[in-house]
């Protein structure tokens, strides 16, 4: 199909929500008619009981009235996350450790699977079955490239260590 010129008025619903006053160069708050400042101290009456460890941004004074309770911080990744939350959202010291913690937890997740007698099915988890079904050539090329690079790296490193070994060996 090629691009075609169209008369917009023929499109169902054209201009139905047009609002000449919606000019974003004016302040949004004024447009939304919030003249009276809402009470910024107001909180919901019921607060969720805190029965799990909840890390809190230091840019707010309290735990929110409702919060998620999934995956509390644990292990090494948890230590890193706790440290990250000593800094504000304005600092790299907050965000970069969180990304590191995410990667550490991936390893912890694999170990946890193994401890519980489960070997992660990486092939299935990565959805390679659909790559095989719909994108086979590119998938095979990618896998072959990874395999070749990995094999090459192993051979290179092992030959290097062999040479170092032979250098260390005393000559008689």
């Amino acid at each position: 199909m090629k691009n075609q010129t169209i008369d917009p008025k023929q499109i169902k619903g054209w201009g139905i929500d047009a609002d000449p006053k919606n000019d974003p160069t004016y302040p949004m708050r004024a447009r939304m008619n919030v003249g009276q400042d809402p009470d910024s101290k107001h909180r919901p009456a019921s607060l969720q009981p805190q029965d799990v460890e909840k890390l809190r941004s230091i840019e707010r004074p309290n735990v929110s009235a409702v919060f998620g309770t999934t995956i509390p911080p644990t292990g090494l990744s948890g230590l890193i996350r706790r440290a990250a939350f000593h800094y504000s959202e304005n600092r790299y010291r907050h965000w970069l450790p969180l990304i590191v913690a995410d990667r550490v937890q991936v390893v912890e997740g694999v170990l946890d699977d193994l401890v519980h007698g489960k070997v992660p099915n990486i092939f299935a988890e990565k959805g390679y079955a659909v790559e095989w079904k719909y994108n086979r050539t590119a998938f095979v090329t990618k896998m072959a490239t990874i395999a070749a690079l990995t094999t090459g790296a192993i051979i290179w490193f092992s030959s290097k260590s062999d040479k170092q070994e032979s250098r260390k060996r005393p000559r008689y």
């Binding site: 909180r43 919901p44 409702v66 919060f67």
Partner: peptide
């Protein structure tokens, strides 16, 4: 987005920026 409907932001119709549902960050609602 998870919104309390009562906070400073929800009262302005900014239900995507609720201040009473996310403890971990202030720059994003829950």
């Amino acid at each position: 987005n998870i919104a309390c409907g009562e906070c400073h932001f929800c009262r302005q119709g900014m239900f995507g920026n609720c201040h009473e549902s996310n403890t971990e960050a202030t720059a994003v609602g829950a």
